[in-house]
């Protein structure tokens, strides 16, 4: 059917890249910031601790980030918050449109542990970089920053090591 064909079939990489590029430019135009996912999450964390009475503005990482402002400024009124919510909502709509939505069970404790460990390492690495895949590859590289290329090189190296670990843990 027409509906099925358009929503279910694979979009070629160049089309996805094109759409992402246009979104990146629009986002930059509106917010004066390139796309970024994880930096927003770190300020959610800061806002959370701030709400509990801590002072993340004095922590080294957030000092460098020039963090300062109200809880609401870094959550509800932060454009990245809506970007992140939009990504999840968009993915949900996409899978519903293709009738592929399903609540998927976690395979095993081993998978859950690996996913949590991987998530922690990615988050920690993204803060040290301090960029995530999106920020470095779609923000730094298009703005001709060398940092993005260095990031890409080490992500590639990390992915090779990670792939070997996955094979050893889950295939052999």
């Amino acid at each position: 059917m027409a509906r099925g064909k358009f929503w279910e079939k694979d979009w070629p990489y160049w089309l996805g890249g094109l759409v992402l590029g246009i979104i990146n430019v629009l986002y930059l135009f509106v917010t004066w910031k390139p796309l970024g996912i994880t930096t927003v999450m770190s300020v959610w964390g800061a806002a959370f601790w701030q709400a509990l009475g801590f002072t993340p503005a004095e922590w080294d990482y957030f000092k460098e980030f020039n963090y300062g402002g109200s809880f609401w400024q870094y959550t509800v009124f932060c454009p990245g918050t809506w970007l992140n919510i939009g990504i999840v909502a968009g993915a949900l709509i996409g899978s519903l449109m293709a009738s592929q939505f399903r609540v998927r069970a976690v395979k095993s404790f081993k998978y859950a542990a690996a996913a949590l460990t991987g998530g922690f390492l990615m988050g920690y690495g993204a803060r040290l970089a301090p960029r995530c895949n999106i920020g470095a590859l779609l923000g730094d590289i298009p703005s001709l920053s060398l940092q993005g290329w260095v990031f890409a090189l080490f992500v590639f190296a990390g992915a090779i090591i990670g792939a070997r670990i996955i094979v050893r843990l889950f295939v052999d």
């Binding site: 069970a105 976690v106 395979k107 998978y111 792939a163 996955i166 094979v167 889950f170 295939v171």
Partner: peptide, 16 residues
């Protein structure tokens, strides 16, 4: 292969 993430399913299929 339910719940298994790429590239594990492909590698398992290849092996089998």
């Amino acid at each position: 292969l339910w719940g298994e993430m790429c590239p594990v399913p492909l590698l398992k299929a290849e092996k089998k």
